[in-house]
């Protein structure tokens, strides 16, 4: 949660309300489980940790000038580290999804590059699981477990294909320029 909120601030300073709206948009119905206060609690914690600071909004479109949250230098660093870190074979789908959203919004990383890196990582994991699975009788207890591990990894890889399709279609580049 902390990382996601930080990453959404990377594009520009925002108020808590706006952050919550963007999170809800990225999460769809899953975002409904997000407690209204959760974003504010997270922001307070991030502020205490010196990762964000409150600023006065420069020029509000309308209404009074409200507080916006902005990243500090160490906040920037943490976002960059979060986007770059590999997530491990059992990483959460939601976290990776939000990482892609945040990467695209902030412009700090190319979502397609993140997808490609994750794909490489998962293929390596799957290769390991498959090698082990082939060495065991599929009907043994060990074989059954390895089958489960391999199927989970396969499901993740199929979802990454969908991620690639969607983010490729949204990418600003790649239109017109056939060969690069």
């Amino acid at each position: 949660m902390q990382d996601v909120v930080l990453a959404l601030l990377a594009k520009e300073p925002s108020h808590g309300y706006d952050l919550r709206r963007r999170l809800a948009a990225a999460l769809g119905p899953l975002g409904e489980t997000l407690n209204a206060g959760q974003v504010y609690v997270t922001l307070t914690r991030l502020e205490k940790a010196g990762l964000v600071v409150q600023e006065r909004e420069d020029a509000p479109v309308r209404g009074p000038r409200r507080k916006v949250y902005a990243l500090t230098a160490s906040g920037q660093e943490r976002v960059a580290a979060w986007l770059a870190e590999t997530t491990g074979p059992r990483a959460d789908v939601t976290e990776f999804h939000l990482k892609l959203v945040a990467a695209a919004e902030s412009g700090l990383a190319d979502p397609l590059a993140l997808v490609a890196a994750r794909r490489r990582e998962l293929i390596r994991n799957l290769a390991e699981a498959q090698r082990a699975a082939l060495a065991h009788d599929a009907n043994s207890e060990a074989g059954l477990l390895l089958e489960g591990v391999a199927l989970r990894l396969q499901a993740d890889l199929r979802w990454l294909e969908a991620c690639e399709r969607t983010w490729a279609a949204r990418a600003p580049r790649g239109k017109g320029g056939g060969d690069g």
Binding site: N125, A127, R131, V149
Partner: peptide, 20 residues
């Protein structure tokens, strides 16, 4: 060609990681 992944050989993450 969009990607080229070499598998096998140098040790991966290990099955322990896969199992959590």
């Amino acid at each position: 060609l969009a990607d080229d992944i070499r598998l096998g050989g140098d040790g991966g993450t290990g099955l322990g990681t896969l199992l959590g």
